[in-house]
Amino acid sequence: MYDRLLREASDKGVDIYEKPMKPTIKGLYCNNNIWINKHLATTSEKACILAEELGHYYTSAGNILDQSKVENRKQELKARSWAYEKLFPLQKIVQAHQSTVRNRYELAEFLGVTEEFLEEAIQRYREKYGPYTTIDNYTICFDPLGVLEMFD
């Protein structure tokens, strides 16, 4: 997933740099440049951070570092939502169900994301859709997480 996001960024003219950064900073985006903290432990974590920073490329404008401002928080949420939908589209929950994924750990592995990212994405989908949503013949429940398959 990380390599695919790197290619997408390159295709859009966004330069990616892996640099040592403070442990509290995982990634930054500014003017078609993304910095990823070189000390992130896994490629799954790097993919999650890169997806969010690409979300800023696609959805944000200006300096939004000051999260005490409502408009900046809205832009941050847009970027994160973009990342959730990029790495964890709802159809992937159905595919995981069809692949007999049994728990959240396996789902995170199936998607190539961190468990933290998975939990945040599920929470965002719950906020957006409520307790469940339907795709084709499948109902995705967010709490508890599961998929119901309907008959044709």
Rank of each mutant, 00 (worst) to 15 (best):
V70M: 10
T24H: 10
E119L: 13
K69A: 09
A61L: 11
S60Q: 04
L90Y: 01
H56Q: 06
A9S: 12
T114S: 15
L77S: 08
R73Q: 14
Y58I: 01
L28G: 03
K19L: 14
K128W: 04
L77F: 06
V70A: 10
T43C: 07
E116L: 08
C30E: 12
D11A: 15
K22L: 11
I64A: 06
E120L: 14
A61I: 14
Y58C: 00
Y125G: 02
N32H: 12
A61C: 05
D15E: 13
D11E: 15
E18T: 00
A96C: 00
E116F: 02
H39S: 13
I49R: 04
H97T: 00
P20K: 09
R126G: 09
Y105M: 03
I25Y: 05
P23H: 10
A47P: 08
T24Q: 09
L90D: 02
K26I: 02
L90M: 09
I93P: 04
S44G: 02
Q123K: 13
I64Q: 07
T59I: 00
E120P: 00
R73D: 02
A9D: 08
N32M: 06
K22W: 03
V70R: 14
H97W: 12
P20T: 05
T114D: 08
L65I: 09
E71V: 03
A61T: 11
K46F: 10
R126C: 05
E71A: 07
A83N: 02
G62D: 03
T114N: 08
E76D: 11
G27D: 06
L40A: 06
A108T: 01
E52H: 15
I16L: 08
E116N: 10
E8D: 13
I16C: 09
G13M: 11
I34Y: 11
E18A: 07
H39N: 15
Y29D: 08
C30R: 13
F88W: 01
A41E: 15
P23W: 08
L54V: 01
Q95H: 10
T43Q: 12
R124S: 13
E85T: 04
A41Q: 11
C48Q: 02
K19D: 01
D66M: 10
L40F: 11
F117N: 04
F110Q: 04
N32E: 13
I16N: 00
A61Y: 09
I64V: 15
N33E: 14
F110L: 07
N31K: 11
D15Q: 11
Y105A: 07
L54Y: 01
T100H: 15
A61F: 12
G112P: 06
A47M: 09
G112E: 10
D66T: 13
Q91S: 13
N63Y: 06
N63T: 03
S68P: 03
K22A: 12
D11R: 14
S10N: 13
E106Q: 15
K86E: 14
R7D: 12
C48E: 05
Q98E: 15
T43R: 15
N103I: 05
T59C: 12
I34H: 08
D11N: 13
L118P: 08
K38W: 04
D15T: 09
K38Q: 14
Q91D: 13
D11G: 07
W35F: 15
L54H: 04
I93S: 06
V101P: 03
Y58S: 00
